[in-house]
């Protein structure tokens, strides 16, 4: 079974990515956006009876998920390459603007060196690129103890320093 990072822990993942993995008999399946929307609109699931979640490609419009967010257990945001940056925006919009509370997973060309930024955008789960080590990636989530931007996690509104008495470094 696939190992992923979820909430800063290595866990076994029992979701099946339909279209990429053999899905027959699966109990929990992740569908591409179009398929997911079709199922939610009353269409037949490619894996009848299985619980469904959705994956977004970079060009997909996350707004399409708005009606379904409350009972969506998982959204997988795919990064076809490490250079792909749209998923960072998708994540922030899903979390901050649309209030998505479930598992938000970055998958694909995701490497250890991106997880800090991804987590700041709201991802709480990481299905890393093949060959990436998971334990060092968990450590990487603590890479920075400060940030200049609002974001997911404890480092909020660091610009508001005029009343914090942040002392000079020297």
């Amino acid at each position: 079974m696939r190992q992923i990072i979820k909430d800063r822990q290595v866990v076994a993942d029992d979701w099946t990515y339909v279209g990429k993995e053999e899905a027959a008999g699966a109990t929990r399946v992740v569908l591409p956006l179009a398929d997911y929307l079709a199922v939610r609109a009353g269409g037949e699931s490619p894996v009848p009876g299985a619980q469904v979640a959705v994956s977004l490609l970079p060009a997909d419009d996350e707004q399409a998920l708005k009606p379904y967010l409350a009972d969506l257990p998982l959204i997988v945001v795919e990064f076809p390459s490490t250079a792909e940056g749209r998923g960072y925006t998708q994540a922030r919009l899903l979390r901050e603007r649309m209030g998505f509370q479930g598992e938000l997973r970055a998958a694909g060309g995701v490497r250890l060196d991106q997880v800090f930024l991804l987590a700041r955008c709201g991802f709480n789960a990481f299905d890393l690129a093949v060959g990436e080590k998971l334990e060092p990636a968990i450590a990487e989530l603590e890479r920075f103890s400060v940030a200049y931007q609002d974001g997911a996690g404890p480092l909020t509104h660091p610009r508001r320093r005029y009343d914090t008495g942040a002392s000079s470094a020297r």
């Binding site: 490490t82 250079a83 792909e84 940056g85 960072y88 925006t89 922030r92 991106q114 800090f116 930024l117 991804l118 700041r120 955008c121 920075f144 940030a147 200049y148 931007q149 974001g151 610009r159």
Partner: peptide, 17 residues
């Protein structure tokens, strides 16, 4: 300087086109 800080290690905008 405000822009420098905002843009530095910006989580959303480090992998722009």
């Amino acid at each position: 300087e405000i822009i420098r800080q905002w843009s530095t290690v910006h989580p959303e905008f480090n992998y722009l086109p």
